[in-house]
């Protein structure tokens, strides 16, 4: 009689905590969403020769480059925070997460400033713009808005984690999971910045 094949790979085939594993699965599923939005934007951009190019060096490219530097630096401090927590240094972990939160808030402030500049000076809204290309506003604000929502949610998430770590709650894998989320937010911007801003520089 043939035996039914069963998996005997043990209880922890990835040797990773259940919370970081859950965050990895979330991150990959969220990456599918952003991939679809980015390809949609790029498809519209490439198929239309009259696609708006509203991003002047100052302030748009200057600000978006500064925003990129802020997110990359915040990922660096977050990685240092995760490392400190794994080594049992809670005080340093809180300081590193606080620095990450500060840079995340800086990113949101600069991004909102950039949005208001586009709306007030360049007259770009969700449905209209001087180039008569309504898809630009829809795809631009949809994509960058969803990303900004992720950054804002990440700031709140990190604040909760930092407050808990300061009070002696949470373990290293909790901080690690929040770090994975934050790095993912950074990772998505590494595609939005070149695909959206640098591809549509005003000449």
């Amino acid at each position: 009689m043939q035996r039914e094949a069963t998996w005997e790979g043990g209880g922890s085939p990835f040797a990773i905590g259940v919370k970081p594993l859950g965050m990895w699965l979330f991150v990959v599923s969220d990456a599918l969403t952003f991939s679809a939005l980015l390809v949609t934007y790029t498809y519209c951009r490439l198929s239309n020769p009259d696609w708006p190019t509203p991003f002047h060096f100052s302030p748009s490219i200057l600000f978006s480059t500064a925003m990129t530097f802020l997110l990359l630096s915040s990922s660096f401090t977050m990685a240092l925070g995760v490392r400190a927590m794994k080594n049992g240094r809670r005080g340093q972990t809180v300081r590193m997460i606080a620095a990450t939160i500060a840079m995340g808030l800086g990113f949101v402030a600069l991004h909102l400033n950039e949005w208001f500049h586009l709306m007030r000076v360049e007259n770009i809204t969700l449905t209209g713009n001087p180039w008569h290309q309504p898809l630009f506003g829809a795809t631009f604000f949809g994509l960058t808005g969803l990303h900004m929502a992720h950054v804002s949610a990440g700031v709140i998430y990190l604040a909760i984690i930092a407050a808990g770590v300061a009070r002696g709650k949470f373990r290293a894998e909790d901080v690690e999971a929040s770090g994975l989320y934050w790095h993912f937010v950074d990772l998505v911007w590494m595609f939005i910045f070149p695909m959206v801003y640098l591809m549509s520089v005003a000449r």
Binding site: F14, I16, S75, M78, A79, G179, H183, D186, M190
Partner: peptide
Amino acid sequence: IIGFFMHLKFER
């Protein structure tokens, strides 16, 4: 970012 910051390089 994935390899070092998310330390996937150091996972299985």
